[in-house]
């Protein structure tokens, strides 16, 4: 049976992880390689690296980092943040990333989804969408949630799929950072309608939240950052819990 995936997300700025970590035996908490290796050992199913300060001059730092990550870990990983062109995607994928995550650039220029998909196959293209419920409507936001767009969340998800996305990374801005649980309703709506995997993101605070999102939606994966970094929920413990709740997960 296909397992539900648990995906830690690492925010990268200038080649270092930000937000810090408190793993006891990590020598350098800001080193993304150290942290990534730790997550692999703990049984993370995939990793996502988001370059949150991606600018043109920082691009080379990112590609060098991707090369290092690729030689250090043996599970799939996605790289996102500032992927604005097919050239950007090529640089990161050829350095060893399995997938690229496209967000604002896909909103501005949806053809980019198709270009990357045609070049590398749709399994390499994750369309990340930050959505927010305002007055009962789920709308898409760009530029790290700072800019509102007129796009309806469900319509944008369907368009992303039609244009060649292989996966959707759905982050609810209403839930992100609250630790009150994933946005079940919109995750359910989108994962029921699209025919590609959906990664639920934003709001994880307890192990029960993971159970809930997997039981009540068709999401194939759940992503979180701080609860893993700060060791609030150790991955092995989360996997054991989910397994006991009859949710299919990969246990080491």
């Amino acid at each position: 049976m296909l397992k539900k995936r648990i995906i830690p997300c690492l925010d990268i700025a200038n080649g270092r992880t930000v937000k810090g970590v408190n793993f006891v035996d990590i020598r350098d908490a800001g080193d993304p390689i150290e942290l990534a290796k730790r997550y692999v050992e703990e049984g993370a199913d995939e990793l996502v690296f988001l370059d949150i300060t991606a600018t043109l001059e920082k691009r080379k730092t990112l590609v060098a980092l991707v090369t290092q990550i690729a030689s250090a870990i043996n599970i799939p990983f996605t790289v996102g943040g500032g992927i604005n062109s097919l050239e950007d995607a090529k640089a990161v994928i050829l350095a060893g990333a399995d997938k690229v995550s496209i967000n604002s650039a896909a909103i501005k220029y949806p053809q980019l989804i198709t270009e990357v998909s045609n070049y590398f196959g749709n399994q390499c293209v994750v369309v990340a969408m930050d959505v927010k419920n305002t007055q009962g409507n789920w709308k898409v936001f760009s530029h790290g949630g700072k800019t509102s767009t007129e796009l309806d969340a469900l319509e944008w998800a369907l368009e992303a799929e039609r244009r060649g996305a292989g996966e959707i990374l759905l982050t609810s801005m209403n839930n992100d950072g609250t630790k009150n649980g994933f946005a079940i309703e919109i995750t359910n709506t989108i994962s029921e309608v699209v025919n590609i995997p959906v990664i639920a993101s934003g709001g994880a605070g307890t192990m029960a939240h993971f159970k809930e999102v997997f039981q009540e939606t068709k999401a194939g994966a759940a992503l979180a950052a701080s609860i893993f970094h700060f060791g609030e929920i150790p991955i092995p413990q989360l996997k054991t819990y989910l397994q006991n709740q009859k949710i299919p997960v990969r246990c080491l």
Partner: peptide, 28 residues
């Protein structure tokens, strides 16, 4: 849901390549 993306198990027949791999081992 396509692609079939993620970790899944194998039902292994006699195979040199998969020596030591059991029914609980997931592959990507």
């Amino acid at each position: 849901i396509v692609p079939h993306m993620g970790w899944n198990v194998l039902e292994v027949k006699e195979s040199k390549l998969l020596k030591g791999i059991s029914v609980v081992d997931d592959v990507y």
